[in-house]
Simulated scan of single mutants.
Amino acid sequence: MNAPFRTLPVCLFLLLSAQGQAAPPATAPKPGPARSVSAPTDAERYARRCQSQTAQRIARPQGTMLWGTKRGWDPEKTTEERTSVLVSVALDAPRQAEDGVTGLRFENGRLWAVPPPETRATVSDVVGTVLQGTASDGKPVEVAICGAEPAADDPTRVFYRIEAWNPVAREWENPCVALDRSPAPRALAVGGVWDASGAHADAADRVTFACENGAISKCILWGYAPWASRDGKSLAGLHQACTRLARADYCGNGRSHTRQDTTIDIYDRMGVLERATEVTREWDPAKGSFEAAWAPDGATCLSRTRDGRALEGILQECPGRFQASTGDARDEGEVCTVSRGDVKPGATLLRNLSYGPPKAEPARVQ
């Protein structure tokens, strides 16, 4: 059971959607020695893993993130928001492992060697393993586990330092998007797979490496670990609803509608996070107002958009999903402009407040 959280105004450091994967460096690097056109052998490739050859290849990552991973390996190629160089890894049949290790096992946010060592098993037993991963386009990608670090605030939660083989640069590199506050992001292991629409599917033999700067990982750090429970109830649904909320994925189609550095206040029906009542450096309750209510498949009730775009644009993005609301308040200040009619009682798990966009016109629905 997780320890209860009282209040947690959450700063979402998310980037505006843009067409490019990354801006080129401000100063072009000096040309280096020409690379061999022949691909390295497996033995050569594995010997080079975890050496951090290209820690700073991407200068300016763009777009809001679900996995927190890079969209593509080629910074010159335009990529869509819902693509990723790595969406999941298989736990069985590792490409490289310590002698006797035939696979890995996932349990409560950790990876364990199979079979376990004869001596006491530790989280470091998996370091050096190379797993077979998959990108969003279905192409294979090899992933090396380079480190395992228990979190300082919760030793049961383990961060993994990972590298993936970049077939364009022919180098190992961190597939996680680096931001100023997290220049060398790590990843959490999370059971199952997320697809391009943001939907989660259980898979006993696969896990997702959720990078620190992505919504999947952030929602765990905010208190919604999907493998945890509270009062005997699983938090898996809350975690999935949180991934929609964090990215303002109103339509439940994997598209985000938020801006970088947007501060919001999250609260839920189970009491993991409660509505903030005190002024902090990050949040002023008097300035916040109700934005939306959330289920695992997206928003169930919407008052306004987080980034200030016209509400009609959301209705066109997912036609038939929302209908004009009666305007009845569900709770203090929770007045919806549009609501879903197909939501069963109890489906709404999360709600959030945010600061309204400056000089925004009141939303109207015909």
Results as ranks from 00 to 15, higher is better:
230 R>D: 15
177 V>G: 00
300 T>I: 06
44 E>T: 06
116 P>T: 04
235 L>P: 13
164 A>L: 07
319 P>Q: 10
243 T>P: 06
83 T>F: 06
35 R>D: 09
167 P>M: 00
157 R>D: 14
323 Q>I: 08
147 G>Y: 02
126 V>I: 13
116 P>W: 01
28 A>M: 10
190 V>M: 13
70 K>V: 11
282 E>R: 08
298 G>E: 10
87 V>N: 11
83 T>G: 05
26 A>C: 04
130 V>T: 13
277 T>N: 08
32 G>N: 09
85 V>D: 12
20 G>C: 01
144 A>R: 01
99 D>H: 06
70 K>Y: 14
45 R>L: 08
68 G>N: 06
139 K>G: 14
61 P>Y: 10
184 A>S: 11
141 V>D: 07
213 N>T: 15
338 V>K: 04
41 T>S: 14
118 E>Q: 14
80 E>Y: 08
108 N>F: 01
353 L>G: 02
151 A>R: 08
96 Q>C: 03
187 A>K: 07
257 H>R: 12
310 A>L: 07
233 K>T: 15
127 V>F: 02
90 A>F: 05
47 A>W: 02
151 A>Q: 11
238 L>Y: 12
159 F>I: 01
27 T>W: 00
326 T>G: 15
195 D>Y: 02
269 R>A: 13
11 C>K: 11
71 R>M: 05
316 Q>P: 00
174 N>E: 12
340 R>A: 14
105 R>P: 13
29 P>G: 03
64 T>V: 08
184 A>K: 05
74 D>G: 01
69 T>P: 11
322 F>D: 01
294 W>A: 07
280 T>C: 02
224 Y>S: 08
149 E>Y: 13
